[in-house]
Design a protein around this nucleic acid. Structure first.
Length: 491
RNA sequence: CGGGGUGUGGCGCAGUUGGCUAGCGCACUUGCAUGGGGUGCAAGGGGUCGGAAGUUCGAGUCUUCUCACCCCGACCA
């Protein structure tokens, strides 16, 4: 078989890149740092979107859309926020082009300078809170539960397809509440939705936790995240949910009259997941032959390849396939029958493996005779021959089984790559030789975290929500600590 | 912004040491065979060698300038 991908062992980063491109998910564009998401990749994103969108709506949220442009002055209203984003903003300064005096090409018309520059949103808190000010007068207007699906731009120095691109797609939820408790409850509710989505749909186990001050969203009081472990032992932050306190309410003067007739600032949250989830999905499960997609997010769940010599055979096979397809479709399964005559079966097998299609069926003259069909599953690469009769039931079960199996595999991997370290030396050694999640005691200070990060390049991914309290001493300073936190090298 | 690298048909590359008809693999087109794991044979189409200036009888190749992209670091979801 022709080798299409680098192997994970050889060069993990190259393997990832090859995979994204060869599987037809995305490619680099003419614009530096910006990608083109290709139809197959976008189909997966659309599936993610539709599931998440349903989950948001089921919990009372509505979609809306706010502008791409943000007046420069808005961004500076919340001090931490501007501090956090200032270094990576694209700025619109002019609104007109003109023909070059030389006659060749066009240039910016310097006379068309904007009075106030516009920032291309790196996130929408500011424009949204500026708007909410007008929407919220009374406790009766609360809670306000809004989500938007949008693109944002963060001028990153180094980009990688899906994992970090200059422009990316995401959803950002922005909610306003009458009380602190309610806002906190919302923050946690969304974190839970993200974790459930990762687990049940992406088949990716995640750890929920609190971010340290260093890693907190600029402008948030508290940031929570879901953290996943990739196959190379690096962590990937896959979603964040922020409790914003009253920071933005104060910055944008968003107040409401409570039941007692007293004016109060509202309490806020914001939360998001992005096309980075695509990167997580790819790296969580795939192997050296290509993608492995969880059935619940696969654009094609079953590919059917006919094997034939003469046109007459193809006709008979196609008739049988049509029958099978009808049954599968009736069971809610997405099927692609690949009867292209331009590629041989072997080529198609490799292609569907590269694209991560969970189940592949092959049917030829021998099968027609015997009333059988060959079934191959992508996750284990097992091939077996089954009677055609009732194959839809087998496949239906199998898709659930694959979903479960790859989740299990990812979870086993994470467990096998989660370590405890009780001294700084042991910690350094683990970071160096093993990677993965490392649980260790930390004194809670930014200084210590910074020192560890500088010396080992591992950072605190989160302070896990669900973990037993354990008295201990910070591995660096020896100061008391009440629980282990999760360290890892991260994307 | 620092360090390294690369620009030659759609993609991946050779050719630069040694200056003179621009080549290979994949992909593409056509035909025949083939078809149960990336088919074989044959015949075709496609490139002013990233750009500009220079040296020269002659430049993909030498000189200078320039542009773009990729990789590694600092920043980040």
């Amino acid at each position: 078989m022709a080798k299409v991908l680098s192997s994970r062992k050889e060069d993990y980063a190259q393997w990832y890149n090859d995979l994204v491109i060869k599987a037809g998910l995305a490619e680099n564009s003419a614009v530096r740092g910006c990608m083109v998401i290709k139809p197959y990749g976008y189909a997966i994103w659309e599936k993610m979107q539709s599931v998440l969108d349903r989950m948001f709506k089921d919990t009372g949220h509505s979609n809306a859309y706010f502008p791409l442009f943000i007046p420069k002055s808005f961004l500076s209203r919340e001090a931490d926020h501007v501090e956090g984003f200032a270094k990576e903003c694209a700025v619109v300064t002019h609104y007109r082009l003109k023909n070059s005096p030389s006659g060749k090409g066009i240039e910016v018309d310097e006379t068309a300078r904007l009075e106030e520059e516009l920032i291309i949103r790196p996130t929408s808190e500011t424009i949204i809170w500026n708007t909410y000010k007008n929407w919220i007068q009374s406790y009766r207007d609360l809670p306000l539960l809004i989500n938007q699906w949008a693109n944002v731009v963060r001028w990153e120095m180094r980009t990688r397809l899906f994992l970090r691109t200059t422009e990316f797609l995401w959803q950002e939820g922005h909610t306003a509440h009458a009380t602190k408790d309610e806002a906190m409850e919302e923050t946690m509710k969304i974190l839970d939705i993200y974790a459930k989505f990762a687990k049940n749909w992406m088949a990716m186990p995640v750890i929920q936790g609190t971010k340290t001050e260093n890693e907190r969203f600029a402008g948030a009081v508290e940031t929570y995240s879901i953290e996943a472990l990739m196959q190379d032992g690096k962590a990937l932050q896959s979603g964040t949910s922020h409790f914003l306190g009253q920071n933005f309410a104060k910055a944008f003067d968003v107040t409401f009259l409570n039941r007692e007739g007293k004016l109060e600032y509202v309490w806020a949250t914001s939360w998001g997941v992005s096309t980075r989830l695509m990167g997580a999905l790819i790296m969580a499960h795939s192997d050296d032959k290509g993608l492995i997609l969880p059935p619940r997010l696969a654009p094609i769940q079953v590919a059917i390849v006919p094997i034939y010599k003469k046109a007459g055979e193809l006709e008979m096979i196609s008739a049988k396939v049509e029958e099978i397809t009808r049954k599968l479709t009736a069971n809610g399964i997405t099927v692609k029958y690949d009867d292209r005559d331009t590629h041989k079966p072997g080529w198609k097998f490799a292609e569907y493996e590269l694209k991560g299609v969970p189940v592949r069926l092959a049917i030829g003259p021998r099968d027609l005779e015997k009333g059988t069909i060959e079934l191959a599953r992508r996750d284990t690469l097992e091939k077996n021959v089954y009677p055609v009769e009732g194959i839809e039931n087998r496949i239906k079960e199998l898709l659930d089984e694959i979903q479960e199996t790859i989740y299990r595999k990812a979870l086993d991997f994470r467990e096998a790559n989660t370590f405890r370290a009780d001294s700084y030396n042991e910690f350094k050694e683990k970071v160096e030789t093993k990677g993965g999640f490392i649980l260790a005691h930390w004194d809670g200070t930014s200084e210590t975290e910074q020192k560890i990060s500088n010396e080992t390049r591992a950072t605190i991914r989160c302070i896990p929500l669900e973990s037993e309290k354990e008295e201990g001493k910070c591995m660096v300073t020896g100061k008391p600590s009440s629980q282990r936190v999760i360290f890892a090298k991260a994307y």
